[in-house]
């Protein structure tokens, strides 16, 4: 196994009384695509800022590319690409100028930056918008420009904080495609998300965090295998009948979860669970059998859904 490019041990960050990140330990290996998964306020962004060497840890050990960010901030940042949660593109500059200027911040020679800027505009599918104002771009284009900007110093690791939050489905798919290409080229990706489908699409391995602590760790498939059943039967009874129905459903499947709007039955075989429900004469408004997802894993681990 190659040496880890990121190694965090008992990583902790507190702001006065508030514990944002509590003793996180994880490693990321080169070329891996690693996800931090959790709801808003789980400590994901704080962790990303520490990994980006722009926020000092309160305690614990952290090594990025073998260096301690407390002592080697600029050196580490020179080899990272950062895509922050909120776009911080330079709106006083044009699209291509954003890449030129950002490259100059790293001290990269003008000629080199100019060449890379053109390549990255191609990659980000923005070549025809090179002279556009940043404010004229759509949300998806802005994100792609931010990613292109993060690549201008040819980073070893790309940090992405909620890369597709707020984008429409089509824009998300375009973005996932671009990130997947980077992964194929061997760039190490570290991303945070609260979207399960995103994590399943992009992450080789992920940790589920909530309230600053790691609840589970593994590949999307192994987490589903470990913390959920193969299939899930979703039943809707209308909010006032949910509780009564649960009593009648007892014993069906491996486990039953009651949500405000629906009841989830976890079972290896969803169809036969559904047959059992109708055999008992329980009538639901709607029923749906689906494959189990990371969303179910999170629900199992925390007792609540991710996007609330």
């Amino acid at each position: 196994m190659p040496a880890p490019v990121i190694s965090a041990r008992n990583l902790r960050k507190t702001y006065k009384e508030f514990v944002a990140v509590d003793e996180l330990s994880f490693e990321v290996t080169a070329g891996e695509s690693f996800g931090l998964l959790g709801p808003n306020g789980a400590g994901k962004s704080t962790t990303m800022r520490m990994l980006g060497a722009v926020s000092e840890r309160t305690s614990g050990d952290l090594q990025i590319l073998g260096l301690d960010p407390n002592d080697h901030g600029p050196e580490i940042r020179s080899r990272l690409g950062v895509v922050p949660q909120a776009d911080n593109l330079d709106s006083e500059l044009r699209v291509r100028e954003n890449l030129l200027v950002y490259g100059r911040y790293f001290g990269i020679p003008r000629a080199v930056v100019a060449r890379r800027a053109d390549e990255l505009l191609e990659f980000a599918q923005l070549a025809d918008r090179a002279k556009a104002r940043v404010d004229e771009l759509s949300g998806g284009m802005k994100r792609r420009l931010t990613i292109a900007r993060a690549l201008v110093n040819e980073p070893r690791i790309l940090l992405l904080d909620e890369p597709t939050t707020g984008l429409d489905p089509q824009a998300r798919h375009v973005l996932w495609d671009r990130l997947f290409r980077l992964k194929e080229q061997g760039t190490t990706l570290v991303l945070t998300t609260h979207y399960m489908d995103e994590a399943e699409q992009l992450c080789d391995r992920l940790v589920v965090v909530d309230k600053g602590v790691i609840l589970a760790e593994g590949s999307p498939a192994s987490l589903i295998r470990e913390y959920s059943s193969r299939e899930v039967l979703e039943l809707r009874f209308g909010s006032d009948r949910n509780a009564d129905a649960v009593t009648a459903l007892a014993g069906i499947g491996d486990r039953i979860e009651t949500l405000p709007d629906r009841v989830l039955i976890f079972a290896a075989d969803g169809e036969s669970a559904l047959e059992e429900v109708s055999r008992r004469g329980i009538e639901s408004i709607t029923s749906l059998v689906r494959r189990s997802s990371l969303e179910d894993v999170f629900l199992r681990l925390t007792g609540r859904t991710l996007v609330e």
């Binding site: 980006g52 722009v54 600029p74 050196e75 940042r77 020179s78 990272l80 950062v82 922050p84 909120a86 911080n88 593109l89 330079d90 709106s91 006083e92 950002y102 911040y105 790293f106 001290g107 110093n153």
Partner: peptide, 14 residues
């Protein structure tokens, strides 16, 4: 508002 320095200081600039 522009978060300009945030972007600058995520690079090697001090």
């Amino acid at each position: 508002y522009a978060k300009l320095y945030e972007g600058m200081l995520a690079t090697t600039l001090g």
